[in-house]
Design a protein around this nucleic acid. Sequence first.
DNA 1: TGGTTAAATAACCGTTGCGTAATATAATGA
DNA 2: TCATTATATTACGCAACGGTTATTTAACCA
Lengths: 112, 112
Amino acid sequence: MTSVFAAIADPTRRAVLDLLARRPRAAGEIGSEFPRISQPGVSKHLRVLREARLVDVTVRAQERIYSIKPEGLAELYEWVAKYQAMWPDTLSALERYLDARGAGEKAKGKKR
Amino acid sequence: MTSVFAAIADPTRRAVLDLLARRPRAAGEIGSEFPRISQPGVSKHLRVLREARLVDVTVRAQERIYSIKPEGLAELYEWVAKYQAMWPDTLSALERYLDARGAGEKAKGKKR
DNA sequence: TGGTTAAATAACCGTTGCGTAATATAATGA
DNA sequence: TCATTATATTACGCAACGGTTATTTAACCA
């Protein structure tokens, strides 16, 4: 599970990245956002994100502070960008596109 | 396997998308690019891509012509774009970033 | 027709992934 | 030193995934 693509395939891990995009958090604080998943479960998700180089960890006492690490996402962005030529038109056209699909959810914090 | 994220988690399916990005192809023609995978194996990958709305199909006699369908990729782009703010700098900075990592597999004209 | 071609579906199988409870590791602090 | 806190690791069950072979569906054509 080293791949960025496999790492973001899981909705829980995408939700973790969304959390960390707001601000860094200790592992336990992340876990408290997922009450239906056990502590080891969260820990394993964090390991996958680490191995995909999507997050960074710093140690503070017993805590592990996780934060977003852009490297992996840049790799993903590079891959998607290859296909931009086939979008209806330019970027603004893309956004109309997404709006038409009702894809404007990112404004109100939700999960998926 | 309805999710775009899960669909692109598999390297074979990403390779199929790369093929179709060049030009549309019949299912059999796609399959011939993957000699190590059986016909039903390829057919199942195509089904996943269809359900993720990443490809389009048109019928021509007994053939199914597959082509890239941007909707799904736009959804993915939307997700990645949320994180752009945390990249080192602007887009050009991102590209220097990628070059430094030797990530220039897709474009030959991308050297510094 | 019947035979051929193209692709999808069905049934099955080994591997992997996500979840769990139990345990281990490690730093804190009385 | 010892109990507590925070997190990771281990061991294991089960469902889903990617692959296979066999079969089905459907269009073409002699």
